[in-house]
Amino acid sequence: MTFDVNYIWRNLPLLLEGLQLTVLVSLFGLLLAVPLGLVVALALLRRGRPENLAARAYVQWFRNTPPLIQIYLVYFGFPMIGLSWNPLATGVVGLAIYHGAFLAEVFRAGIAAVSDRQMMAARALGMTDGKAMRRIIIPQVVRLMLPAIANELVLLAKNSSLLSTIAIVELTMAGKLLAEQSGAVYEVFAAVAALYVILTVGMGLALRRAEWKLRLEH
């Protein structure tokens, strides 16, 4: 079997289009997952309240079931209850629900670590607990959690490949279509894999730089 590099070059624009969608879906997924995770994390920290139980159930349930099933649930389920979105929005929501559960755990640990020391100081300044949370704790946690958020974005980008199963032509689907159509399996999947690796490594580097900048400014 021969490996035709030219074939990759000729079809690169198709794959890059898929890559574009992958990036877009990942970013929107993160944009949704971060606030979701934050809200759930706050509920996780309020022991003995009803929302605490709900938050714990949410985290355990979604951490222990496949993201594919969750995407199916949104994709097949939402139209049944009268929500007929385009598949793209569906995919983003499905991914966000899954990754929100992981981020919630990360945020919970981060808030707990910061708040022990800082809540006292804020109270000593006469702040209410709610205000202290908003003004003192959360800004610190977000900064502290930036590496973890970056890590989650990388995982999101990888999991966005699941959207190929609901007919969204992101990078994986683009590759699959191309491979089935041409039979140039090695070439196509090597290219797709390389693009994913470049993407995930690049995301990691970019966010590390952003984090570095933040640290310099403060």
């Binding site: 966005s160 490949s161 190929s164 994986t172 590759g175 399996v185 797709v192 994913y196 690796v197 490594v201």
Partner: peptide, 11 residues
Amino acid sequence: RGMPLLVFVFG
């Protein structure tokens, strides 16, 4: 580790 499991499975 840098590529999605699904891509690896397809490959």
